[in-house]
Design a protein around this nucleic acid. Structure first.
Lengths: 186, 186
DNA sequence: CGGGAAACTTGTCACTGGCAAGATTGCCGC
DNA sequence: GCGGCAATCTTGCCAGTGACAAGTTTCCCG
């Protein structure tokens, strides 16, 4: 699906998504303008509508791409839960634009088929990462552990991106995330 | 400060902030329209500018109000860290509009004096809540514990608001938060 | 009661998203 | 090779928005 080959512009769909990433990193998803994306890509103001229908369509595609990237990232992090957690935070920082759109479902069509599939892939990757948790404890609750792990990495990533963390946390998100997440497995 | 007494409209500044809360809960902060707020309050489209200057000014006031509310909420939760964590999540759910704006600094003026003061108040409340953590452990790291606690409650709240959590978590955010947060103090 | 300031209105402009209609280009079958 | 067709993109338009300027109403204080 979505395989759009070269045509007039070259690869406008891809170019628009790339421009969207750039623009969102500069001004945030709220201030995103389709016309600005068109200008960045050197096409007319109505060109984006042809590929994505409307703004929500473009952000839907961006979110789907993001969930896909996240799934790949988590799968590539190995079975170690700590490594997966650090990879999650690292993904949020390195793909800030994608991450910010992904978890703001009011911006896109959350029931889009392609997006649902990609989200399911990243959900599976997340669960498989948590599945590697030691479960020999008598009072272990895998469901609770999974939610706790997801919450702590997601919260840390969100606070980092919002610039809400105190300066003394440092400027290396991977190292800072490793310290905080490891608290979960003292 | 900010004490605007009754005048023509009655209390337009307050009415506009209340309308903003309502509108954000309906359509999210990105789709917020000053003109829509003016219509809701029954005033002309330029009236909001007089009280807040521009859109960022209004959201700055809303964020400051939110940090103030959060500080009160946390201070009212008692010294128990678990109770404070549950209160944090409960605040996010009950004051969704405030919460969503507070942690999106690109929407407002993060260096506004009143806002900085309110944020500092909520930061102090947060730290005092974490201060109640047992520190008799030899390897205890209060800074790390504070970050971990903040991250897990913030992440859980954010995921809850985004509708990203699986249905089996239930529909009671307080109870669900209690289960997840307690994982930090096994 | 007079005058000045605060609160609000009216009018305007540039910009945006979305739609409709048209122009251009690539491509496929014959 | 070429006729036609569909995909791609452009031009033109409209309503809605944020911001600003200028004017009007209302309040308040001496």
């Amino acid at each position: 699906m979505t395989g759009t080959r070269a045509y007039h512009h070259g690869d406008l769909r891809r170019a628009l998504l790339a421009a969207a990433v750039e623009a969102i990193e500069e001004v945030g998803p709220a201030a995103l303008s389709l016309r600005d994306l068109a200008r960045r890509a050197g096409v007319s103001h109505a060109a984006p509508a042809h590929h994505f229908g409307d703004k929500a369509g473009l952000l839907t595609a961006l979110a789907a791409q993001g969930f896909d990237l996240l799934a790949q990232t988590l799968n590539g992090a190995g079975g170690d839960l700590l490594a997966a957690g650090v990879a999650y935070v690292d993904f949020a920082v390195r793909h800030r634009a994608h991450f910010e759109v992904m978890f703001r479902p009011e911006l896109y069509r959350a029931d889009d088929a392609e997006l649902v599939a990609a989200r399911e892939r990243s959900g599976a990757a997340l669960r498989s990462g948590v599945g590697g948790l030691r479960s020999d404890d008598p009072g272990a609750d895998p469901e609770r552990d999974a939610l706790a792990a997801w919450s702590i990495v997601h919260g840390f990533a969100t606070l980092w991106l919002a610039g809400a963390l105190p300066p003394r946390v440092g400027d290396d998100p991977r190292e800072a995330a490793r310290v905080v997440v490891s608290r979960l497995f003292n």
